[in-house]
């Protein structure tokens, strides 16, 4: 390729920076690329096949926004910086982690993202679950406990527990470290991927896990309630309680969801039941709610169908890889 044609080609691309929970990468996109082209390239770089859980997020006017995969990147309201910045994050959560996450990379990215949500208190977690989760996170990072290596203080620089938990007890940092280390020592023999899976199995039972909350109301000008969308369905909460829903509708209970401007409408399958109407703050919020409902519902249906050939291959490869690792782990 001549320098001239190379230069010409270079002008037809733009730079993007992708930040995942673990790493960063810089990629070049062609000017007419759609979201999907970039998303596929990122997944390829990460060697990630369970792509359906993830999305690319950017910040638009202070609001976290998901990149639309079927539209051109440069036609979306992505801040025009050089490079354009995106975060590669889990957008949808499995109903059951041990039955739906197969690749180590998928599981690892979920583990890192959920751990951050718990430590940042986006997911509220009891003190006892926080300690047990911390002990599995330590096992995943440090491997088997060895008192000669893991001496008191080895966790002093680690962020182990949510601040809310620390404030509930009169315990020094050393006392917390000691408690977590005692439980960490119990996990001897558990490999990194197993420790991360144990972490996720506990986390998925926390009430706020995988929930997307939106302020809604029953009248036009209030926002006294919350609507939660997750892998199982939609949930209605009072504004000050994100834990226990006032009412839940599983995907199987809902016939249709639609919106008109700020009004959002759920039609139940039960023809005798009344249509449920809510108002949200903006039409854009309704658009996002509808999008999350459709995608979560699609995943819900896909999981209940016979596996595609691609899915069968992913499961087979993951099984072989796990068996190989287990053998290696036992040999060591």
């Amino acid at each position: 390729m001549s320098i001239r044609s190379l230069k010409k080609k270079q002008q037809k691309t733009f730079k993007v920076k992708i930040v995942t929970m673990e790493t960063e990468m810089e990629l070049h996109c062609e000017m007419d690329w759609k979201g999907n082209d970039l998303f596929d390239l990122v997944c390829k770089h990460l060697v990630l096949k369970e792509t359906w859980f993830f999305g690319l997020q950017y910040m638009a006017s202070g609001v976290d926004t998901w990149l639309k995969l079927d539209k051109k990147i440069l036609q979306q309201d992505v801040p025009k910086e050089d490079p354009l910045k995106f975060r590669f994050l889990a957008k949808f959560y499995p109903e059951n982690v041990s039955e739906e996450l197969f690749q180590d990379i998928t599981q690892h990215l979920f583990f890192l993202q959920v751990k951050k949500q718990i430590l940042d208190e986006e997911i509220i977690c009891s003190p006892e679950a926080s300690v047990l989760l911390a002990s599995y996170a330590v096992q995943a990072k440090y491997g088997n406990y060895n008192p000669n290596i893991h001496q008191p203080g080895f966790l002093s620089q680690e962020e182990l527990l949510p601040k809310r938990v620390l404030q509930q007890y009169q315990m020094t940092s050393e006392m917390w470290q000691e408690k977590i280390t005692a439980w960490y020592a119990e996990h001897r023999g558990i490999a990194r991927d197993e420790a991360e899976m144990n972490y996720l199995k506990i986390a998925q039972d926390l009430d706020m896990y995988g929930m997307n909350y939106f302020p809604i109301s029953q009248t036009k000008n209030d926002s006294d309630m919350l609507l939660g969308v997750d892998a199982k369905g939609i949930h209605i909460y009072s504004r000050n309680n994100k834990i226990s829903p006032l009412k839940s509708f599983k995907w199987g209970d809902i016939r249709n969801i639609s919106y008109n401007s700020k009004k959002l409408k759920f039609t139940p399958v039960d023809k005798k039941a009344e249509t449920i109407k809510f108002y949200s703050k903006e039409q854009n919020v309704n658009k996002l709610i509808l999008h999350l409902c459709i995608e979560n519902h699609n995943l819900f249906l896909t999981k209940r169908k016979v596996d595609s050939i691609e899915m069968q291959q992913i499961k087979m490869q993951a099984k072989e890889e796990r068996a190989r690792k287990k053998n290696e782990h036992q040999r060591l």
Partner: peptide, 27 residues
């Protein structure tokens, strides 16, 4: 539907009891 935290309930209970003596009164 299995109970929440099913295989971990014993560990969670043990941790909860071990933390009790250190709980702040307000907590």
């Amino acid at each position: 539907q299995p109970a929440k935290f099913a295989p971990y309930q014993k560990a969670l209970r043990e941790i909860r009891y071990s933390l009790l003596p250190f709980a702040n009164e307000s907590g």
